[in-house]
Amino acid sequence: MKRRRISGIERKSLILDEARRIFSKHGFEAARTQDIARAAQVSEALVYRHFPTKQALYRAVLRRTIRDQNANHEMVGLRNITPRGLITNLRTYFQIVVGGGPEHVTEGFRLLLASVAGDASFASLIYRRANRMMNERVHQALVQAHACGDIVGKVLDARNTSMFTEHIGTMMNTLAKMTSQPSPYSGDKAQLVNDAVWFCSRGLGFTEEAIARYLADADGEGDPAQTLRDDAYPTRKAG
Rank of each mutant, 00 (worst) to 15 (best):
residue 161 T to H: 03
residue 224 P to G: 02
residue 191 Q to P: 02
residue 81 I to Q: 08
residue 142 L to P: 00
residue 50 H to N: 04
residue 86 L to T: 07
residue 112 L to P: 01
residue 191 Q to T: 13
residue 112 L to I: 12
residue 73 H to E: 09
residue 49 R to A: 07
residue 92 T to A: 10
residue 24 S to L: 02
residue 160 N to T: 15
residue 207 T to A: 03
residue 180 S to V: 11
residue 152 V to I: 14
residue 102 P to F: 08
residue 79 R to C: 08
residue 88 T to F: 10
residue 81 I to R: 10
residue 111 L to V: 09
residue 236 R to S: 12
residue 18 E to H: 04
residue 48 Y to G: 01
residue 83 P to H: 10
residue 49 R to M: 09
residue 160 N to A: 15
residue 219 D to T: 05
residue 93 Y to A: 12
residue 179 T to M: 09
residue 89 N to C: 14
residue 201 S to W: 00
residue 167 H to I: 14
residue 189 K to L: 08
residue 70 N to A: 09
residue 34 Q to S: 13
residue 195 D to I: 07
residue 102 P to S: 14
residue 109 F to E: 06
residue 184 P to I: 15
residue 16 L to I: 03
residue 239 G to H: 11
residue 104 H to M: 12
residue 214 Y to E: 00
residue 232 A to W: 13
residue 145 A to M: 02
residue 132 R to P: 09
residue 129 R to D: 10
residue 97 V to C: 05
residue 211 I to Q: 04
residue 57 L to H: 00
residue 51 F to G: 00
residue 8 G to P: 00
residue 64 R to T: 06
residue 150 D to S: 07
residue 54 K to M: 05
residue 192 L to R: 14
residue 208 E to K: 12
residue 194 N to M: 14
residue 25 K to N: 07
residue 98 V to Y: 02
residue 61 V to M: 06
residue 118 G to H: 12
residue 35 D to I: 06
residue 139 H to E: 15
residue 227 T to G: 15
residue 226 Q to D: 11
residue 200 C to V: 15
residue 33 T to D: 05
residue 52 P to Y: 04
residue 156 L to A: 14
residue 163 M to K: 14
residue 9 I to T: 13
residue 126 I to R: 08
residue 74 E to P: 06
residue 114 A to S: 13
residue 77 G to C: 04
residue 177 K to F: 08
residue 126 I to S: 02
residue 162 S to D: 12
residue 126 I to H: 05
residue 155 V to H: 02
residue 219 D to E: 13
residue 140 Q to W: 08
residue 183 S to P: 00
residue 40 A to I: 03
residue 149 G to H: 05
residue 129 R to G: 06
residue 83 P to M: 10
residue 225 A to V: 05
residue 227 T to Q: 14
residue 235 T to Q: 14
residue 96 I to R: 09
residue 41 Q to W: 05
residue 21 R to T: 11
residue 184 P to R: 14
residue 176 A to R: 09
residue 128 R to N: 11
residue 198 W to S: 11
residue 34 Q to V: 15
residue 1 M to W: 08
residue 120 A to I: 08
residue 184 P to L: 13
residue 3 R to V: 09
residue 68 D to G: 07
residue 146 H to D: 07
residue 28 F to G: 01
residue 157 D to C: 08
residue 160 N to D: 15
residue 194 N to H: 15
residue 183 S to R: 06
residue 42 V to A: 02
residue 98 V to H: 02
